[in-house]
């Protein structure tokens, strides 16, 4: 039995221990305070207080959509530049930018709200699978490996790099079509998907009046025959839309039509004209049946097929 053989008086132990503890702890505290004071003086960073205020006005999404590494960096850039030229927070939109402008005492021009648009409609139905891909589930790698399951070297690879890149849950892969879908209410046009897509299929386009917009859902630059061989709804570069457009908004470069959204007046003439249904209209009311057009269409040797149900062309609302 090893009991401690030294005996102190209880009170004496308490007094000694307590006094030493109090003294030593106080000494440490004072020393630390002095050191901290001098360090704080030495490394003091003088910052413009407006950076904090601007940062508070920003949405704190840190998505990088403005081109800066996070909201803080963007706030610093704004304060440093002293103007709002070329600086825009796509997430906050006009509301946030006008708040920022107020803080900075500047004017800001209204920017049209944008949305990410998928310029491919090579769904499993439109562009049938020719081979089966196995391997790392990333478009970036598959893009370097081969042309795609439908053999279209421009089309969506369907592995969802864009979905991963989206910080706002505004994208999901449609199981049936194998294409990503933009949820319009959630998309803030930060541009992450545009950067993530190795094939540059996404484009930021204006949301449009009443959310109505028209775009060419294809970026295939191949000639008509090979493009059409891989995908029923490819732009074949026929140029009909260019001719029909009353506003010169459509250009045809490298066998591919592109609608300039600055010039487009949403007249929808090109949509009707496109023989492969590659031009999509979104959120327009259904057309009134026009018998004379239908008659005209039936006279053609190979009439364009009736527009199919295209999940991509209808908008998905997040709220029910």
């Amino acid at each position: 039995m090893k009991q401690s053989s030294v005996h102190y008086k209880k009170e004496q132990i308490v007094n000694d221990v307590m006094i030493y503890a109090v003294i030593s702890l106080s000494a440490i505290g004072v020393a630390a305070a002095v050191i901290l004071f001098f360090v704080a003086q030495k490394f003091k960073v003088i910052e413009d207080p407006r950076i904090d205020t601007v940062q508070e006005a920003l949405p704190s999404a840190n998505c990088g959509g403005c081109g800066y590494a996070g909201c803080r960096a963007f706030a610093e850039a704004i304060v440093k530049a002293g103007s709002l030229e070329g600086l825009n927070c796509p997430v906050g939109g006009n509301a946030v930018m006008s708040d920022v402008a107020k803080i900075m005492g500047l004017e800001v021009e209204e920017k049209e709200p944008m949305i990410a648009v998928l310029r491919c409609n090579g769904s499993r139905e439109n562009a049938p699978q020719k081979v089966k891909y196995e391997g790392a589930a990333t478009c970036a790698f598959a893009h370097g490996l081969y042309s795609g399951e439908s053999a279209c070297p421009y089309g969506c690879l369907g592995l969802g790099d864009c979905v991963v890149s989206c910080d706002f849950d505004a994208l999901y892969m449609d199981e049936i079509t194998g294409l990503p879908v933009v949820i319009a209410d959630k998309c803030v046009a930060c541009g992450a998907c545009v950067k993530a897509c190795p094939r540059n299929i996404f484009e930021l386009r204006p949301k449009g009046k009443k959310d109505r917009r028209i775009h060419v859902a294809c970026i295939n630059k191949e000639k008509g025959a090979p493009a059409k061989k891989n995908c029923d709804v490819a732009c074949i570069g026929c140029g009909k839309c260019v001719k029909v457009c009353p506003f010169d908004a459509i250009t045809l470069v490298n066998n591919l039509a592109y609608i300039d959204f600055e010039k487009c007046k949403l007249c929808r003439k090109c949509v009707e004209e496109c023989p492969t249904n590659a031009i999509h209209e979104i959120n327009f009311p259904p057309r009134k049946p026009k018998p004379e057009i239908k008659a005209g269409a039936s006279e053609k040797p190979s009439p364009a097929p009736e527009p199919k149900e295209m999940p991509i062309a209808t908008e998905i609302k997040a709220n029910n």
């Binding site: 081979v131 089966k132 891909y133 196995e134 790698f141 490996l145």
Partner: peptide, 8 residues
């Protein structure tokens, strides 16, 4: 069957 594509 469809041919399989994968990296080496």
């Amino acid at each position: 069957t469809l041919l399989t594509i994968s990296g080496s």
